[in-house]
């Protein structure tokens, strides 16, 4: 185990790095205005980032070759998507997701 001093510095430095990552755009864009082309680009951030965060979970990375399929997450995704279409309610979707994952964890 690393020394407590090393752990302290790790938490301090990584904390500072994540904080700066999050606030720098807010601080800079208070002074500068983004060109319309950039704003148009950023309009696509929500759907691409949410899709990417999801799809990353249905594959398992294997270095140097195509990923394997994470069948548990893939199977659990199906009832989750269906519940989204039917309910359009985030709480219902999350609960269905949790139950499906627990179910497929037993079955698969």
């Amino acid at each position: 185990m690393p020394t407590i001093k090393f752990i302290f510095w790790t938490i301090f430095c990584t904390g500072l790095a994540t904080w700066l990552t999050r606030i720098t755009p807010f601080v800079l864009l208070k002074k500068f205005t983004l060109p319309p082309a950039v704003i148009e680009f950023l309009n696509f951030v929500p759907i691409t980032i949410m899709a990417a965060l999801w799809f990353q979970q249905i594959f398992i990375q294997q270095s140097g070759q195509l990923p394997a399929i994470d069948y548990l997450n893939l199977c659990a995704s199906l009832p989750t998507v269906i519940s989204a279409v039917i309910s359009k309610n985030l709480l219902v979707i999350v609960v269905v997701g949790i139950i499906s994952a627990a179910f497929f964890n037993i079955v698969l």
Binding site: I47, L72, N73, A84, I93, V94, I98, A101, A102
Partner: peptide
């Protein structure tokens, strides 16, 4: 992960993505 909670965040992104698709009229 045995209790399905590991998937909760993914489920949330699925839900938010779907709700975004059906309600965002700008694209």
């Amino acid at each position: 992960t045995k209790f399905g909670f590991g998937f909760a965040v993914t489920a949330m992104f699925i839900g938010l993505l779907y709700l975004q698709i059906i309600s965002d009229k700008t694209i």
